[in-house]
Design a protein around this nucleic acid. Structure first.
Lengths: 141, 141
DNA sequence: GTGTTTCATGAGAATCATTATCATTAAGGC
DNA sequence: GCCTTAATGATAATGATTCTCATGAAACAC
């Protein structure tokens, strides 16, 4: 009944990612910004640059990138904001005034987190640290 | 034209917080849960308990509590989720399966964050750390 | 280069969480 | 108990995000 026709070309499930101009531009827009951006901001910026793109495409692309681990997501008031994030583990130091973001490596934190987790019987520990402060440029009054 | 009547009683701006049954119940609902809850979840739960409350009230109360620093906010997919959070500084250890949350004190982290921030010229450093893992109860297969 | 397949895009509508409006209710102080 | 005023609830409105489906363009085979 449910036998599969062996002559049929069994197309393996493919999750291809076609390279389109829109995706390139969206990725580039995220690279250029140092902080979080909402989908609407990315959209406005691209339209301002003369890149033809639609809002649904921006949403789709951002969501896909976030699922692929390329982006950090944050709740910014009622809506989501996205930030480029290198795949290797690290932490962030964010200026709370201008939004400038610095990625920080912190090997000592890794072992610390694992130790703390073990204390409570937790395994498979991962962690995220965000630091906020005032950056040098924003300290001048 | 636009002069203000000096005889009018100049009521000073007051920000009082009246104690109502709804607010008590919402706060209690947050205390009872160990993890994040959305406004809708809080609403459903209270209605299930027979507490008469409206969705706008839940939203208003959660927003007010979050602004008052009593709650943590997180983007859960498209909507916001709230979690009770004691006012003194601490960190969280969250089970990624059942959502159970443990608050962890970590004095050494404080000085570490400040040091890292200073390295980059940042001042007034604050930080947030979230650890995820598998709790003992969820490890049994 | 041309044809074919299939995924990505865009325009618009639809969905759904969240917020605003406003009449009504009930705290808190007298 | 009365008064003032903030809180609530019902409903509508807002607005971000997602869905639908027809069209356009990559990727690939020939």
């Amino acid at each position: 009944m449910t036998s599969i026709d062996p002559t049929a070309s069994s197309t393996p499930p493919r999750v291809s990612e076609r390279k389109t101009r829109q995706r390139e531009r969206i990725a580039h827009c995220l690279d250029a910004a140092s902080g979080f951006q909402t989908a609407q901001q990315v959209y406005d910026r691209l339209r301002g640059d003369g890149t033809p793109v639609s809002l649904p495409t921006v949403y789709r692309t951002l969501t896909a990138m976030a699922e692929g681990g390329e982006l950090d997501v944050r709740a910014d008031d009622g809506h989501s904001a996205y930030r480029r994030c290198s795949p290797d583990h690290h932490h962030h130091l964010v200026c709370r005034h201008c939004g400038r973001t610095i990625e920080v490596q912190a090997p000592s934190l890794e072992s610390w987190a694992t130790t703390v987790g073990r204390t409570y019987g937790f395994t498979d520990i991962t962690h995220v640290t965000e630091m906020s402060g005032t950056c040098p440029d924003c300290q001048e009054v």
